[in-house]
């Protein structure tokens, strides 16, 4: 059974006003346990609206969100539980830090779950370790940290709820290349160690290619593609028409192939690309 299933979900903004608009239009897909899925789409394609349905922050105008087969909007209680089972980390989450210490900020989610002190403590320390925050930082004010560190505190706060599904909206936006890599590595690491399901929303085709098993492309509130990285990035023309793109490296390879070089199309990162070119040259250019 899929951990998360979205069934014929539609959402309208401004119902009953002249400005009524279909933000999401009949969306269906499912996510398997332990999968890393990326959602991409142009600004305004409905990505952020969609993920807010996954933990009942928004209620669909039509359709259902099933968590392990059960509709999360079945009762107030199930909707409340979904908040903890599905952890949502918003864009620029560091703006939501508010406590006086890093420790208290990370503990805020678990404390709201009604856990006992010892369990909260265990979770705070574990989450802090996951995101690479030193023990000595836990007593500091989050506002004395650098931008990248603040972001990691905010992410730790969601991880400490130990959600079955972790959703991250643009986790690396606004960070420098090293900061991006740190965040992406920690998400990969978290998923490997905990077996959690991770959904990542991103505008960076490079980041998506380096972490995801599968890509869901949203376009004007509809699912345009739902397929492997390889399949989705083979549609350069359609993606460009949707305001998206393919990774720079993939573009280089598609161009080289058009000049008759017999190179693989399944290349998204610099490392893959170097390997493939060396293989090609080694075989004497065939």
């Amino acid at each position: 059974m899929s951990i998360l299933e979205i069934k014929n979900l539609s959402y309208k903004y401004g119902v009953g006003t002249p400005f009524e608009i279909d933000a999401l239009d009949n969306i269906s897909f499912s996510v398997e346990k332990g999968e890393m899925v990326a959602i991409i789409g142009h600004t305004g394609s409905g990505k952020s609206t969609l993920i807010q349905h996954f933990n009942a922050l928004l209620k669909a105008s039509e359709g259902q969100v099933l968590l392990e087969g059960k509709d999360i909007n079945e009762s107030r209680e199930s909707a409340h539980k979904a908040r903890f089972r599905v952890g949502l980390c918003f864009q620029y989450p560091e703006y939501q830090l508010f406590e006086s210490t890093v420790y208290k900020d990370i503990a805020f989610g678990p404390a709201n779950m009604g856990l006992d002190k010892a369990e909260i403590d265990r979770r705070v320390r574990k989450a802090a370790e996951f995101v690479g925050l030193k023990e000595s930082m836990l007593d500091k004010s989050p506002f004395d940290l650098s931008g990248g560190e603040k972001r990691r505190v905010a992410i730790a706060g969601v991880m400490a709820m130990e959600p079955e599904v972790l959703i991250m909206d643009e986790p690396a936006a606004g960070l420098d290349p090293r900061g991006r890599k740190v965040i992406l590595d920690l998400i990969k690491n978290y998923r490997e160690k905990t077996g959690s399901t991770v959904i990542i929303v991103s505008h960076s085709m490079e980041d998506v290619a380096s972490v995801a098993d599968r890509i869901i492309v949203l376009n004007k509130g509809r699912v345009a593609f739902n397929d492997s990285v390889e399949e989705v990035f083979s549609h350069e023309k359609e993606l460009r028409e949707m305001g998206l793109n393919i990774p720079q490296i993939t573009k280089i390879f598609s161009e080289l192939r058009s000049f008759g070089f017999n190179l693989s199309g399944n290349v998204y990162t610099v490392d893959d690309a170097a390997e493939e070119i060396l293989r090609y040259l080694h075989k004497g250019g065939n």
């Binding site: 420098d176 290349p177 900061g179 490296i249 610099v270 490392d271």
Partner: peptide, 15 residues
């Protein structure tokens, strides 16, 4: 400086 080369440059250098 916490930065990186553009992807095309990285690939060329690696090769």
């Amino acid at each position: 400086a916490g930065l990186e080369l553009p992807d095309s440059a990285k690939l060329a250098l690696k090769l």
